[in-house]
Design a protein around this nucleic acid. Structure first.
Lengths: 125, 125
DNA sequence: CTTGCCCCTGACGTCAACGTCAGGTTTTAG
DNA sequence: CTAAAACCTGACGTTGACGTCAGGGGCAAG
């Protein structure tokens, strides 16, 4: 039993990450280019990711869907894995949160408008 | 009393529409180009809009914010002012409605994730 | 008359998250 | 060994709702 070695988890390649997270290989490379994801390299130059890269990519997608830019996501990553933030980071997080909340409200209003139109048209069959 | 004339409302120019709706003049021209808005023309070629153009533009903004394209908005305009729809239109309306609802859910999930991060970081001051 | 403001028509620029193609290397299955 | 599948690095293309610039017209106030 070698206690010094923490049971090396098998690294995965970019294709597996992409399939696992439901995105394209191109997208995963793009995330690296944006500083969101780092990968080791095999001797031949292929990217090797840890298992949790899939989770990370899913998280990126969720943030993108919420309207965050790559830069914002990069800014909040330290909070994610450091477990603490400074004042600026907290301010940023709250600002984004408020922006998303406002967007939710806007969408809900738009939804009501559409329902209104549907409702009007449904009353005249 | 001339019953034949419906009390001609004063037409407004593009700048007033833009200011009234809080968008740029360029945007209003774009909406016309996309077939969302029609305008009369003065003898000198200037666009003349009815008062309710402001309301229309606000509606466009709301739909854009909800992720609809110009084409989709153009498609649902007949429903808006005709007061009835055919099967295809109703299907489209429902599809967009569902898409927006899904987006709301996604945003809410993203919001929860951010709150999670904020919560974690707040517990370590 | 001219100054200033608003309007017009093109037409090119922007931004972000990728898509896609070219041309070449590596890994894997049989 | 060989062919297919997967990976690599550039680098240009896409999409949508506008921004912005160029060049020019019209019209009321002073």
């Amino acid at each position: 039993m070698t206690v010094t070695e923490p049971a090396t988890e098998p690294l995965i390649r970019i294709g597996e990450v992409a399939r696992g997270a439901g995105v394209s290989v191109r997208a995963v490379r793009y995330y690296e280019q944006q500083g969101l994801l780092t990968a080791e390299r095999s001797p031949s130059g292929q990217r090797l990711y840890r298992q949790d890269a899939v989770t990370m990519v899913r998280f990126f997608q969720q943030m993108y869907a919420a309207g965050l830019t790559s830069q914002r996501i990069a800014e909040l990553l330290p909070c994610w894995d450091a477990g603490h933030t400074d004042a600026d980071q907290r301010a940023m997080l709250r600002a984004e949160r408020d922006r998303i909340q406002a967007k939710v409200d806007d969408l809900q209003a738009a939804l009501d408008r559409l329902d209104e139109v549907i409702g009007i048209t449904d009353t005249h069959p």
